[in-house]
Protein backbone atom coordinates (compact mmCIF):
# COMPACT_ATOMS: atom_id res chain seq x y z
CA UNK A 1 0.00 0.00 0.00
CA UNK A 2 1.38 3.35 -0.96
CA UNK A 3 1.30 6.11 1.62
CA UNK A 4 -0.52 9.08 0.08
CA UNK A 5 0.86 11.55 2.60
CA UNK A 6 4.29 11.47 0.98
CA UNK A 7 5.57 11.97 -2.53
CA UNK A 8 6.47 8.92 -4.64
CA UNK A 9 9.52 7.29 -3.02
CA UNK A 10 9.24 9.67 -0.04
CA UNK A 11 11.63 12.40 -1.20
CA UNK A 12 10.33 15.60 -2.76
CA UNK A 13 11.14 16.12 -6.44
CA UNK A 14 13.72 18.83 -5.87
CA UNK A 15 15.68 16.58 -3.54
CA UNK A 16 15.49 13.74 -6.05
CA UNK A 17 16.77 16.00 -8.81
CA UNK A 18 19.69 17.03 -6.64
CA UNK A 19 20.53 13.37 -5.95
CA UNK A 20 20.04 12.44 -9.61
CA UNK A 21 22.45 15.14 -10.71
CA UNK A 22 25.00 13.81 -8.23
CA UNK A 23 24.53 10.25 -9.55
CA UNK A 24 25.17 11.41 -13.12
CA UNK A 25 28.36 13.20 -12.04
CA UNK A 26 29.40 10.09 -10.16
CA UNK A 27 28.93 7.94 -13.26
CA UNK A 28 30.86 10.43 -15.37
CA UNK A 29 33.79 10.50 -12.90
CA UNK A 30 33.93 6.87 -11.72
CA UNK A 31 35.13 6.50 -8.14
CA UNK A 32 35.06 10.24 -7.34
CA UNK A 33 32.97 11.14 -4.31
CA UNK A 34 30.38 13.72 -5.31
CA UNK A 35 29.21 15.92 -2.41
CA UNK A 36 25.43 16.02 -2.11
CA UNK A 37 23.05 17.71 0.29
CA UNK A 38 21.91 14.58 2.04
CA UNK A 39 18.53 14.97 3.69
CA UNK A 40 17.38 13.77 7.04
CA UNK A 41 15.58 10.53 6.44
CA UNK A 42 13.04 8.90 8.74
CA UNK A 43 15.69 6.35 9.71
CA UNK A 44 18.94 6.94 11.55
CA UNK A 45 22.17 8.02 9.92
CA UNK A 46 24.43 5.02 9.69
CA UNK A 47 21.51 2.72 8.91
CA UNK A 48 21.45 3.17 5.16
CA UNK A 49 20.21 6.73 4.67
CA UNK A 50 22.61 7.24 1.77
CA UNK A 51 21.55 4.05 0.06
CA UNK A 52 17.91 4.83 0.72
CA UNK A 53 18.22 8.29 -0.85
CA UNK A 54 19.97 6.87 -3.89
CA UNK A 55 17.33 4.15 -4.24
CA UNK A 56 14.54 6.69 -3.81
CA UNK A 57 15.99 8.82 -6.60
CA UNK A 58 16.53 5.79 -8.82
CA UNK A 59 13.40 3.66 -8.46
CA UNK A 60 10.49 3.79 -10.87
CA UNK A 61 7.11 2.30 -9.99
CA UNK A 62 7.74 -0.45 -12.56
CA UNK A 63 10.77 -1.73 -10.69
CA UNK A 64 11.11 -4.78 -8.52
CA UNK A 65 13.23 -4.00 -5.49
CA UNK A 66 15.40 -6.23 -3.33
CA UNK A 67 17.17 -5.32 -0.12
CA UNK A 68 19.93 -7.30 1.55
CA UNK A 69 21.98 -6.76 4.67
CA UNK A 70 24.93 -9.11 5.23
CA UNK A 71 23.71 -10.92 2.11
CA UNK A 72 20.37 -11.79 3.71
CA UNK A 73 16.91 -10.49 2.81
CA UNK A 74 15.43 -11.17 6.22
CA UNK A 75 17.82 -9.32 8.51
CA UNK A 76 15.96 -6.64 10.45
CA UNK A 77 17.42 -3.59 8.75
CA UNK A 78 16.84 -5.08 5.29
CA UNK A 79 13.25 -5.80 6.26
CA UNK A 80 12.81 -2.26 7.54
CA UNK A 81 14.16 -0.62 4.36
CA UNK A 82 12.15 -2.93 2.11
CA UNK A 83 9.00 -2.04 4.02
CA UNK A 84 9.79 1.65 3.71
CA UNK A 85 9.81 1.46 -0.07
CA UNK A 86 6.80 -0.82 -0.24
CA UNK A 87 4.98 1.86 1.68
CA UNK A 88 6.31 5.01 0.01
CA UNK A 89 7.05 3.90 -3.56
CA UNK A 90 4.56 1.10 -3.94
CA UNK A 91 7.20 -0.99 -5.70
CA UNK A 92 7.11 -4.75 -6.02
CA UNK A 93 9.73 -6.46 -3.88
CA UNK A 94 11.51 -9.74 -4.24
CA UNK A 95 14.10 -11.83 -2.50
CA UNK A 96 15.26 -13.34 -5.78
CA UNK A 97 18.36 -11.64 -7.14
CA UNK A 98 17.49 -12.49 -10.73
CA UNK A 99 14.04 -10.89 -10.47
CA UNK A 100 15.23 -7.59 -9.00
CA UNK A 101 15.77 -4.42 -11.03
CA UNK A 102 17.26 -2.46 -8.16
CA UNK A 103 19.10 -4.13 -5.29
CA UNK A 104 20.06 -2.15 -2.20
CA UNK A 105 22.81 -3.79 -0.22
CA UNK A 106 24.73 -3.44 2.96
CA UNK A 107 28.08 -5.27 3.16
CA UNK A 108 27.68 -7.80 0.32
CA UNK A 109 27.53 -8.24 -3.42
CA UNK A 110 25.13 -11.02 -4.42
CA UNK A 111 26.78 -14.26 -5.51
CA UNK A 112 24.82 -14.54 -8.77
CA UNK A 113 26.30 -12.39 -11.51
CA UNK A 114 24.24 -9.27 -12.06
CA UNK A 115 22.95 -8.29 -15.48
CA UNK A 116 23.23 -5.11 -17.54
CA UNK A 117 19.69 -4.09 -16.68
CA UNK A 118 20.23 -4.26 -12.93
CA UNK A 119 21.33 -1.56 -10.50
CA UNK A 120 23.19 -2.27 -7.29
CA UNK A 121 22.92 0.41 -4.59
CA UNK A 122 25.43 0.22 -1.74
CA UNK A 123 24.97 1.70 1.71
CA UNK A 124 28.24 3.35 2.69
CA UNK A 125 29.23 4.39 6.22
CA UNK A 126 32.59 6.12 5.53
CA UNK A 127 33.05 6.80 1.83
CA UNK A 128 36.57 8.13 2.14
CA UNK A 129 39.12 5.30 1.75
CA UNK A 130 41.83 7.54 3.19
CA UNK A 131 39.78 8.64 6.22
CA UNK A 132 41.42 6.35 8.76
CA UNK A 133 44.83 7.45 7.58
CA UNK A 134 43.94 11.14 7.51
CA UNK A 135 40.81 12.35 9.33
CA UNK A 136 40.63 15.74 7.64
CA UNK A 137 38.43 16.13 4.59
CA UNK A 138 40.46 19.15 3.47
CA UNK A 139 43.55 16.91 3.33
CA UNK A 140 42.03 13.81 1.75
CA UNK A 141 40.35 15.91 -0.93
CA UNK A 142 43.77 17.29 -1.84
CA UNK A 143 45.22 13.80 -1.98
CA UNK A 144 42.55 12.68 -4.44
CA UNK A 145 43.04 15.82 -6.50
CA UNK A 146 46.79 15.20 -6.75
CA UNK A 147 46.33 11.44 -7.10
CA UNK A 148 48.59 11.21 -4.09
CA UNK A 149 47.89 7.76 -2.69
CA UNK A 150 51.27 7.02 -1.16
CA UNK A 151 49.80 7.04 2.36
CA UNK A 152 47.56 4.11 1.46
CA UNK A 153 50.43 2.09 0.09
CA UNK A 154 52.49 2.85 3.18
CA UNK A 155 49.64 1.56 5.35
CA UNK A 156 49.32 -1.65 3.36
CA UNK A 157 53.07 -2.08 3.41
CA UNK A 158 53.20 -1.61 7.17
CA UNK A 159 50.64 -4.41 7.44
CA UNK A 160 52.95 -6.67 5.52
CA UNK A 161 55.97 -5.85 7.63
CA UNK A 162 54.01 -6.44 10.84
CA UNK A 163 51.79 -9.38 9.88
CA UNK A 164 53.35 -10.78 6.76
CA UNK A 165 50.15 -10.01 4.86
CA UNK A 166 47.83 -7.12 4.08
CA UNK A 167 45.65 -6.99 7.18
CA UNK A 168 42.53 -5.53 5.56
CA UNK A 169 39.76 -8.04 5.18
CA UNK A 170 36.78 -5.84 4.31
CA UNK A 171 36.27 -2.37 2.86
CA UNK A 172 39.41 -3.23 0.95
CA UNK A 173 40.40 -0.20 -1.15
CA UNK A 174 40.24 -0.35 -4.92
CA UNK A 175 41.50 1.81 -7.74
CA UNK A 176 38.85 2.72 -10.28
CA UNK A 177 39.86 2.83 -13.94
CA UNK A 178 43.40 3.75 -12.96
CA UNK A 179 42.45 7.04 -11.29
CA UNK A 180 40.51 7.31 -8.02
CA UNK A 181 41.12 5.15 -4.99
CA UNK A 182 37.66 4.19 -3.74
CA UNK A 183 36.13 2.57 -0.72
CA UNK A 184 33.98 -0.32 -1.95
CA UNK A 185 31.88 -0.02 1.26
CA UNK A 186 32.45 -2.65 3.96
CA UNK A 187 32.02 -5.66 1.71
CA UNK A 188 34.39 -8.55 2.45
CA UNK A 189 37.37 -8.46 0.13
CA UNK A 190 36.01 -11.73 -1.28
CA UNK A 191 33.49 -9.56 -3.14
CA UNK A 192 35.98 -7.11 -4.64
CA UNK A 193 36.58 -8.99 -7.91
CA UNK A 194 32.83 -9.02 -8.55
CA UNK A 195 32.80 -5.22 -8.84
CA UNK A 196 33.88 -5.48 -12.45
CA UNK A 197 30.31 -6.23 -13.53
CA UNK A 198 27.67 -5.50 -16.19
CA UNK A 199 25.33 -3.72 -13.74
CA UNK A 200 25.45 -0.08 -12.61
CA UNK A 201 26.86 0.33 -9.10
CA UNK A 202 25.80 3.35 -7.05
CA UNK A 203 27.13 4.21 -3.61
CA UNK A 204 25.33 6.44 -1.12
CA UNK A 205 26.79 7.81 2.11
CA UNK A 206 24.05 9.89 3.77
CA UNK A 207 25.74 11.16 6.91
CA UNK A 208 28.94 11.95 5.06
CA UNK A 209 26.97 13.53 2.19
CA UNK A 210 28.68 11.70 -0.63
CA UNK A 211 27.52 9.76 -3.69
CA UNK A 212 29.81 7.86 -6.01
CA UNK A 213 29.36 5.39 -8.80
CA UNK A 214 30.91 2.75 -10.97
CA UNK A 215 29.53 2.31 -14.48
CA UNK A 216 29.28 -1.20 -15.95
CA UNK A 217 32.51 -2.89 -17.04
CA UNK A 218 34.67 -0.35 -15.24
CA UNK A 219 38.13 -1.60 -14.39
CA UNK A 220 38.36 -2.10 -10.63
CA UNK A 221 41.69 -3.11 -9.15
CA UNK A 222 42.16 -4.03 -5.50
CA UNK A 223 45.33 -2.36 -4.26
CA UNK A 224 48.22 -4.73 -3.68
CA UNK A 225 51.92 -5.31 -4.26
CA UNK A 226 53.56 -7.50 -6.86
CA UNK A 227 55.03 -9.82 -4.24
CA UNK A 228 51.89 -9.66 -2.05
CA UNK A 229 49.05 -9.94 -4.54
CA UNK A 230 45.46 -9.36 -3.55
CA UNK A 231 43.58 -12.49 -2.53
CA UNK A 232 39.80 -12.82 -2.41
CA UNK A 233 39.50 -15.06 0.61
CA UNK A 234 36.65 -16.83 2.32
CA UNK A 235 36.27 -19.58 4.89
CA UNK A 236 37.82 -22.73 3.45
CA UNK A 237 34.68 -24.79 3.69
CA UNK A 238 31.68 -25.66 1.60
CA UNK A 239 28.23 -24.43 2.56
CA UNK A 240 26.76 -26.99 4.95
CA UNK A 241 23.30 -26.50 3.50
CA UNK A 242 23.78 -26.23 -0.26
CA UNK A 243 27.31 -27.53 -0.68
CA UNK A 244 28.54 -24.47 -2.57
CA UNK A 245 32.31 -24.08 -2.54
CA UNK A 246 32.28 -20.71 -4.29
CA UNK A 247 30.10 -18.58 -2.05
CA UNK A 248 30.99 -16.38 0.89
CA UNK A 249 30.16 -18.16 4.14
CA UNK A 250 28.87 -17.17 7.55
CA UNK A 251 30.19 -19.15 10.47
CA UNK A 252 27.50 -20.20 12.92
CA UNK A 253 28.27 -21.55 16.37
CA UNK A 254 26.00 -24.49 17.01
CA UNK A 255 26.46 -25.47 20.64
CA UNK A 256 28.40 -25.01 23.87
CA UNK A 257 31.11 -27.35 22.59
CA UNK A 258 31.94 -24.81 19.90
CA UNK A 259 30.73 -26.93 17.03
CA UNK A 260 30.25 -24.81 13.96
CA UNK A 261 28.59 -24.85 10.65
CA UNK A 262 29.19 -22.74 7.58
CA UNK A 263 26.33 -21.39 5.50
CA UNK A 264 26.06 -19.07 2.52
CA UNK A 265 25.76 -15.45 3.55
CA UNK A 266 23.70 -14.85 0.38
CA UNK A 267 20.41 -16.41 1.50
CA UNK A 268 18.79 -16.25 -1.94
CA UNK A 269 21.76 -17.93 -3.58
CA UNK A 270 21.68 -20.75 -1.01
CA UNK A 271 17.91 -21.16 -1.30
CA UNK A 272 18.00 -21.37 -5.09
CA UNK A 273 20.81 -23.92 -5.00
CA UNK A 274 18.89 -26.08 -2.56
CA UNK A 275 15.78 -25.72 -4.71
CA UNK A 276 17.85 -26.99 -7.62
CA UNK A 277 18.72 -30.11 -5.61
CA UNK A 278 22.15 -29.25 -4.20
CA UNK A 279 22.70 -30.66 -0.71
CA UNK A 280 25.41 -29.76 1.78
CA UNK A 281 27.08 -31.67 4.63
CA UNK A 282 24.20 -31.10 7.04
CA UNK A 283 21.41 -31.63 4.55
CA UNK A 284 18.81 -29.08 3.69
CA UNK A 285 17.59 -26.58 6.20
CA UNK A 286 14.14 -28.16 6.15
CA UNK A 287 15.57 -31.48 7.18
CA UNK A 288 17.45 -29.72 9.96
CA UNK A 289 14.35 -28.00 11.19
CA UNK A 290 12.38 -31.25 11.00
CA UNK A 291 14.95 -33.01 13.14
CA UNK A 292 15.12 -30.14 15.62
Amino acid sequence: MSDQNYNFAYLDEQTKRMIRRAILKGLAIPGYQVPFASREMPMPYGWGTGGVQVSAATLTPDDTFKVIDQGADDTTNAVSIRKFFERTANVATTEETAKADVIQTRHRIPEAELREDQILVYQVPIPEPLRFLEPRETETRKMHALEEYGLMHVKLYEDISQHGAIATSYAYPVKVEGRYVMDPSPIPKFDNPKMDMPAIQLFGAGREQRIYAVPPYTKIVSLDFEDYPFEATKAEHACDLCGSTHSYLDEVILDDQGNRMFVCSDTDYCRSRRAAGHVGRLGTENELEASA
Binding site: P44, Y45, G46, W47, T49, D69, Q70, G71, T75, N77, R106, H107, R108, P125, H163, G164, A165, A167, S169, Y170, A171, P186, I187, P188, K189, F190, R207, T233, K234, A235, Y248, L249, D250, E251, S265
Partner: peptide, 26 residues
Protein backbone atom coordinates in the same frame (compact mmCIF):
# COMPACT_ATOMS: atom_id res chain seq x y z
CA UNK B 1 26.38 11.31 15.77
CA UNK B 2 23.76 9.16 17.42
CA UNK B 3 22.88 7.44 14.16
CA UNK B 4 26.41 6.44 13.41
CA UNK B 5 27.17 5.55 17.00
CA UNK B 6 24.14 3.32 17.27
CA UNK B 7 24.57 1.70 13.88
CA UNK B 8 27.22 -0.55 15.36
CA UNK B 9 24.28 -2.46 16.84
CA UNK B 10 23.40 -3.61 13.35
CA UNK B 11 24.71 -6.99 12.20
CA UNK B 12 28.30 -6.83 11.03
CA UNK B 13 28.86 -10.57 10.91
CA UNK B 14 30.02 -10.62 7.29
CA UNK B 15 32.86 -8.22 8.08
CA UNK B 16 33.58 -10.02 11.32
CA UNK B 17 33.81 -13.28 9.41
CA UNK B 18 36.33 -11.70 7.06
CA UNK B 19 38.39 -10.57 10.06
CA UNK B 20 38.08 -14.00 11.64
CA UNK B 21 39.45 -15.71 8.55
CA UNK B 22 42.29 -13.22 8.34
CA UNK B 23 43.28 -13.62 11.99
CA UNK B 24 43.16 -17.41 11.66
CA UNK B 25 45.33 -17.27 8.58
CA UNK B 26 47.86 -14.91 10.18
Amino acid sequence: ATGFLEHIKLPHYVDFQAELELVRKL
